[in-house]
Design a protein around this nucleic acid. Sequence first.
DNA 1: GTTAAGATTCCG
DNA 2: GGAATCTTAACG
Length: 176
Amino acid sequence: MSHARFQEDFFGRDVLEVIPELLGKYLIRKFDDGTIHKYLITEIEAYRGEEDLACHASKGRTNRTEIMYHDGGHLYVYLIYGIYWMLNIVTGSKNNPQAILIRGIEGFDGPGKLTKHLKIDKSFNGENLVTSDRMWIESNTEKINVGFKTYPRVGIDYAGEIWKNKPWRFILSDNL
DNA sequence: GTTAAGATTCCG
DNA sequence: GGAATCTTAACG
């Protein structure tokens, strides 16, 4: 099969619409040595708008969150705890800050672990998944319908009961 | 300029 | 449970 890279229209919708569809799809990484690897996306979380107190954009538009205000399809990458890079995919329309945190891919569970393996760093912040030659998303032709379960998001105790309890963490089930 | 806290992981 | 480790944002 030729490339089935996802385009702007996929990422441009509301994050809650995109997130169940992103599960079970492939994250493609082309490393500097030219090798291309495909990773099944197994665990992701949604962060939705300024009203979502767990979303970084809840504090408004800053240099850090600027990328989330762009239209969908860009990457939002930041360092957490001084050690780990977090990989997020921006979704939604322009000036509508949303993102999906990639928490797990096949073989590498944990947002900090997978970015280490994928060699993600700050240079990926703002990367465009539609035009990038080192990272993009492809459809999965083998598994059309995937099962998933939802859970509350992780590590956001500060966000208050309402947002803390939103079932916006999606995990791929053993499917079909 | 200083400081507090964080979308995590590993070790004990 | 605690440390590692550094960027961001909120002070002033």
